[in-house]
Structures are given as C-alpha cells and as structure tokens.
Design a protein around this nucleic acid. Structure first.
Length: 513
RNA sequence: GCUCCGAUAGUGUAGCACGGCCAAUCAUGCAGGACUCUCACUCCUGCGACUCGGGUUCGAAUCCCGAUCGGAGCACCA
C-alpha cells in the first residue's frame, strides 16, 4: 500500500496496464448524466399507471402543470396509463367549481397530457361506502360521535374515545343511520382504527367520512349523498381500484401515505410506490388562494381567470406561452423534496427559443407622438417580416407624417439625427411642433454617425392595446398586425405578444421580452 | 407539545442508493465583448455553490453523529 502514493500518473498507468488492462477501458467510460426525468422505481414498461388528482375548486394554475406534466411524462416514458381524477368530495369548504372540470381536461390536452381515463370521485361514492362497510365489519372502523375538540384531546393523550370499542354490528347500524341522513351534520364521523398510542399524533385514528348536507354542485349528484369521504379514504380506495402503480404527490401528504397504509393493510392491498415533491413558489406571483382570487375577480380587480396577471394556465396560454415550453420547464425542474422558489425567467427563455423563429416582426408605437417629415417624397417602406428567416416584407406607406414613441422623442433635441428603422435618416429641425428633415437613405451613414435607430408607425395604422402583467400599453401599430390573430408576434423593441383579438382595435397579450 | 422531511452558485438542477471519475454538470441569471437597420436572436469571455462542526477512511458533496436553518403533518380541507 505504501508505494501507491508514489510515482507519476504515467507510472500508474503503466503499472495498471501490466496488472489489469481490462480495467483501463472501464475507467475511461464517463458517467453520462441522465437527461429528463429520473427512472421510476420498480417501473415496468407497459404496466405503469399514474394519476393527477386535483380538486376542481378553481382553474388549473402553473403549479398544477407540474403534476399534470410530470405524471403524464412518466406514463409516456413507460408506455403506461395516465388518469385524471377529480377529488371533488368536499361540497363545502373547498367546493368544486362546475366550469373547472372542463378547464382541467382542456388544459391537460393543451399541455400534451391527454388523460387516458377520467374519473370523478363524486360519481363513485357507493364504491367508497362498500369498502367502508367491509372495514366496519372487520372491526377496523367505527362511528365516532365525539366533538372534534373532545376527540383531539383524547387523541393527544393517546386515549381511545368511548365509541372505539363498540361492536361491528352496532357500528353497522349507526353507519346505516348515518347514510340515510339520521344524524345531523357534524354529529358523527367514521374513523379508521390505527394505533391510538402511535408516537406520531398524525397517525392516530383518522377520519374517513363525515356528514355534509350541502348538495354537490354537480347536478347529476346534487343531494344524493349526505355522507362524504375525506381525501385519505377516497384517495386510498381509488388508487387501488384504478390500479395505480406510482404516485407522486406533495410533501404535505407524506403522513397521508402512512394513514392510508392502514387501510391497505386491512383490505390486503399493496401500496403503490410513492414519491414526494416540495412546494413551488413563483417569484413573479404573490400568494394566491383560489377563494381569494374568486373574490378579486368578482370585484372586478381582474378581468377574469385568464387575466395576464394571474398564474392560471388559461392566462399563460392566452399570453402565448407554448405548451412545450411549460413541459420542458417542469421536466427540467424534476422531482425534488425541497421547497423551491423559482423565477419565470427560465420559462420565458424556454418559450423565447420556441417563438423567436416563428414570430413575425411589427412596429408598435406606444405613447405615440406625431412627427412631421420635410424634404422627402412619399414612399413605401419594406421592413422584413423576420430578420433571418426569409419570409418576405411588410409594406408601409409613408407620407409626410409618422408616429414615434414618446420615450424616444424625449431623448431628442433640435439638430439630433436619427435613423427611422428600415426607412431613412432624418435630422430634427424643430421640437415644438416636432419636425424632422430628410437626410438620406444610407444605413452606412447612420452607422457612421452612430444615429439611434428608432421604430415608428404610420399615422393611419391600427390602434393596439397590449395587456401585460405590468399593466396596459396603448398605441398604434402596422395595419398588417390584424392578420396575425392568435399568433405570437414580436413588436420590435418592445417584446413578444400574442394577438388576442382583432377589430376596430387590436388587443394583444404580452408574452415576454 | 408530539411526529416527519429536506439543505449543491442569484435561481433551478446533475452527481449521493454502491466514497476516488468532482479542480462539481446543465440551464437560467448577471457582467463584458462580437454580430445585428429591434432593447429580440446568435456567438465568444467571465462571475458564481457542496449549511456548519465532529467522526469513519489512504481518500467524503457522497457514509455516520450532532448543530443550525428551512418546510410539513397532528381537520368533520384537498
């Protein structure tokens, strides 16, 4: 051993060649970093079933896309099955929103994550009752009439409540009475027996069903049921019945798995492979709660669920973010247990790569100021639609007046020379009123004199309104913008925008710089 | 109070299961420069991290212990 530390690398190589030449090749193989998502534990191609299970109590947000994209991406990778399941069994606190069901389906499709199957929990309540009955019969569940406060105290003291040891027969009767509406709201819950002395208080006898007399918002369900399952129960049953092999969910649900394991044990089922991820916060968006947002929208502080200031999928879609960019962004983020706080810059950079070659260029002048040109004949300007992709030119008639941005004018003084982009060079002859005199067409002389290059718009252009997260911009743009409905364009020296509507005026949604 | 989890550049991420390929990957960001009739794109160059302290070992980002910081659960919410 002592001699190992001595000698040069060359000596070592020579020694190794003598001793074990086969090792050399092995050492030369560099570990390849894995691209994309890490492999799933115990996953067999063709047998993977995963799900995204939201409560449709509001529209999908950028946060939801992580669950949609990563789950569906894994399923694609293993040629499995992707299920969209609506966990909509709370008619009260997180009451489902009727429109949101379709929004989720729509947004999944848009993101390239079309579900292979769609399941709505509120349609399957009898299934949950059935398993609840089995558990009661087996003595693994009981109807508890404690007030929540009382139960909490007992639980914290590791003490069983008086209802815990009632016989299955009696429990069954009480359960039936519960189902038929024989008890008032909040007077009874069905609990799953775990271990009342478990060292972790979160795992001691947890609730599985409660009485909720508020009807379900879905008309096909309405007031059919008064007993509704809680998430841990509903999810546990569904995940097994639907054949889930792998689950990825929030770290906050870690104890959920431990609780659900009791149910699985009682029913003789195997628990799916579970992974957890941390919370994602976006720098650009403050804290939004679905209920808070709803109020704000109703009060008119936002224009709707697709207001460009909101982190909803509908909003970013309207802004011209491409689904592929969101996918790449979320997949690159991977599945980590750390809580993260990310910036949308990375998403924008991803999107820019996608949109840059496609977007036609146009002039849009915000805060327009009229500028009079002397000494030039009327002409037609021909700026290219794209600087590198050979896609032809736009045509803009230029007479004696054009519009330029106020912020550009503020940098001028009598005598300044500027280049009107893709047009010609001028010199300012008067500031009030703003007048310029034609100099020449040569780009070379513009460069030689280091003139500022300023974009402009025709006075008879089309009014344009840009809605952005930072507010509204209004001005005038080239008429041809009206032909780009639903496309992403680049307003030169401004940024990328998606043309949202075209009429008397063009409305554009700001994408990013 | 009880219980669980995590920590790599400004931000995210790879590497950690099995310690030497790590003088630590990639992306984004930032700074400087080239190109350009846009502040976009492209291309160069640069900046920047293993939370801390012990231990094991010839060798630790990787294993062990402790501390610190951060997050979460203990609902008749999801």
């Amino acid at each position: 051993m002592g001699e190992v530390g001595k000698g040069t690398p060359e000596d070592w190589q020579a020694r190794l060649e003598q001793l074990a030449p086969e090792l050399i090749e092995e050492l030369c193989v560099k570990k390849e970093p894995d691209k994309g998502l890490k492999p799933l534990e115990k996953a067999e191609c063709g047998n993977v079933v995963m799900r995204f299970a939201p409560n449709p109590n509001g529209p999908p947000t950028l946060g939801s896309t992580r669950g949609i994209i990563v789950n569906s991406e894994y399923v694609k990778k293993y040629d499995g099955k992707f299920i969209l399941r609506f966990d909509d069994t709370d008619t009260q606190t997180k009451r489902p929103m009727l429109e949101a069901y379709d929004w989720y389906i729509e947004d999944c499709n848009w993101l390239g994550a079309k579900p292979d199957e769609i399941v709505i929990a509120s349609d399957r309540v009898p299934l949950y009752y059935e398993h609840a009955r089995t558990l009661i019969e087996g003595g693994h569940a009981y109807v508890c009439f404690c007030e929540s406060e009382t139960f909490k105290k007992l639980k914290d003291a590791k003490e069983a409540c008086p209802h815990r040891d009632i016989s299955p027969q009696e429990n069954l009767e009480q359960w039936d009475k519960m189902l038929s509406g024989g008890y008032p709201e909040k007077s009874a819950v069905l609990r799953i027996k775990t271990d009342i002395k478990h060292k972790d208080p979160a795992l001691r006898d947890f609730g599985a069903f409660r009485i909720l007399k508020m009807p379900h918002p879905r008309p096909e369900v309405g007031d059919k049921y008064v007993v509704w399952p809680l998430l841990d129960f509903e999810g546990a049953i569904e995940d097994h019945v639907l054949g889930m092999t792998h689950i990825i969910r929030g770290k906050d649900l870690m104890d959920s798995e431990k609780r659900q394991t009791y149910i699985y044990k009682y029913l003789g089922w195997d628990y799916p492979v579970t992974t957890h991820w941390g919370r994602v916060k976006m720098h650009e968006f403050g804290k939004f709660s679905t209920s808070g947002l709803r109020c704000a929208i109703e009060e008119g502080r936002y224009n709707g669920w697709d207001d460009p200031r909101l982190p909803t999928v509908r909003a970013i879609r309207r802004r011209g973010i491409q689904p592929e960019a969101v996918r790449k962004f979320m997949i690159d983020m991977g599945v980590g247990e750390t809580d993260i706080s990310i910036s949308l810059d990375t998403l924008y950079a991803e999107n820019r790569k996608l949109v840059e070659p496609k977007a036609n260029r146009y002039f849009f002048v915000w805060d327009p100021v009229e500028l009079e040109i002397t000494g030039a004949n009327p002409c037609i300007a021909n700026p290219p639609l794209h600087p590198t992709e050979n896609r032809g030119c736009r045509e803009i008639d230029v007479n004696s007046k054009i519009l330029v941005c106020k912020e550009d004018v503020e940098k001028l003084a009598t005598g300044s020379k500027i280049r009107l982009k893709d047009l010609y060079n001028v010199e300012v002859t008067s500031m009030e009123p703003l007048q310029v005199h034609y100099l020449d067409d040569s780009i070379a002389s513009a460069k030689k004199d280091k003139m500022r290059i300023v974009h402009w718009a025709p006075v008879d252009g089309i009014p344009v309104k840009v809605l952005s997260p930072d507010g509204e911009f209004t001005g005038i743009g080239e008429k041809r913008i009206a032909t780009e409905l639903d496309k992403v364009v680049q307003f030169e020296r401004f940024g990328f925008c998606r043309i949202d509507s075209v009429g008397e005026e063009v409305v554009a949604y700001y994408t990013h710089k």
